[in-house]
Simulated assay, not measured.
Amino acid sequence: MSIANLLDPITAQGGQTRFSGLDQWMQGRTLYGGASALVAYTAATRAFPDLPPFRAAQVAFVAPTGSDIEVRREIVRQGRNVTQVRSELWCEGQCALSAFWLFGTLREANAVHPAAPIEEWPGPPEDAEDAMNGKGPAFITNNFEIRRAQDVRGPGAPIVRRWARLTDRDALDPISQLILMGDVLPPGAMRVMKRQGPLSSINWSFNLLDTEPTTRDGWFLSENASQHADHGYSSERLRLWNADGHQVLDGMQSAAIFG
């Protein structure tokens, strides 16, 4: 029911849309970033169902997103191979999220360079210890199963790594699952914060490395790593691997570090 609350109201026509039961997807006073990104992605693909395979995105989290949303989407450019679609979520008269989605046809490879194998493989998710049971914001406690994928606890290197899977995923295609969970972890910079304080995603850009991603039992290894943090912001690299250690998503994010 949680996924249905998120996606069922979205129509091909767009426009004013009312959602219900979104309390399960909230992060403070706004819809969790992965959930709002999935709403925008679904709006684009339902409006334009004949798009080529999805390959990349740029998502700006502009303002809090609530239950009453105006959905806007348009094809910005449709070339011979690549189509770029923009979708926006508007709340209370202002833009709350703006996203560009890149779709591209399959072409004969002129360059082949597989993603490097993951360093410090934590072992399979089936052997990992549970983490965050009953803890964290509403969107995690209601929708995700989280397991440890690193030994460090508390302060340390600015990297957060966890196994994660959606508890309700049967109605989602694999790409929608990745969008919904790609932003699930807090910034890696939290491990070097001088004191506890709020954290907030500002944007998220990512490339999909496999247009037909697969994994085992819904598990993905998620990692957020701060590349540089200062002046209240952190530049983060976000990556996802499947349960066999194959990278499926590579992304970047700017995060606000308050407190």
Rank of each mutant, 00 (worst) to 15 (best):
L102V: 15
T141R: 14
Q24E: 10
I3T: 12
P124I: 08
A35G: 10
S201M: 10
N207I: 05
F100Q: 11
P187V: 06
G28W: 14
G197Y: 13
T105M: 06
F258C: 11
V71Y: 04
D183A: 06
L240S: 01
P213K: 07
K194T: 14
N142Q: 15
L199N: 08
M252A: 02
T42V: 13
S235C: 02
R77T: 06
T141C: 13
G156V: 04
R216W: 01
R73S: 07
T214R: 14
N81A: 08
G21L: 13
F19A: 02
S2E: 03
A225K: 15
A164I: 15
E126T: 12
F54R: 01
A109T: 09
G28E: 09
T45N: 09
G34P: 07
R107C: 09
F100E: 03
I146G: 01
A57W: 11
T215R: 11
S36E: 09
D170H: 10
D8H: 04
T211L: 01
A56N: 05
R148C: 12
Y233M: 11
L240T: 07
W219H: 09
R18N: 03
D183Q: 13
F48K: 04
W101M: 00
V192E: 05
E70K: 01
P186H: 06
T45K: 14
Q13S: 14
L22A: 05
R46L: 08
E129M: 11
R148Q: 14
E126W: 03
Y32N: 04
T215V: 13
Y32R: 07
R216C: 13
T42D: 09
W163L: 12
Q58I: 08
S176A: 14
F61Q: 05
S87D: 02
D23W: 10
A47W: 03
S2N: 09
P114L: 15
T214D: 12
K194W: 03
V82A: 10
A128T: 11
A256P: 00
M26L: 12
M26I: 10
G188C: 10
G34D: 10
A164G: 15
W121S: 13
P125W: 07
L6F: 04
Q196S: 12
M193A: 14
D173S: 13
A115S: 15
F220K: 05
A128P: 06
E145W: 02
K194C: 00
I202P: 00
R46Y: 02
N203S: 08
G251Q: 11
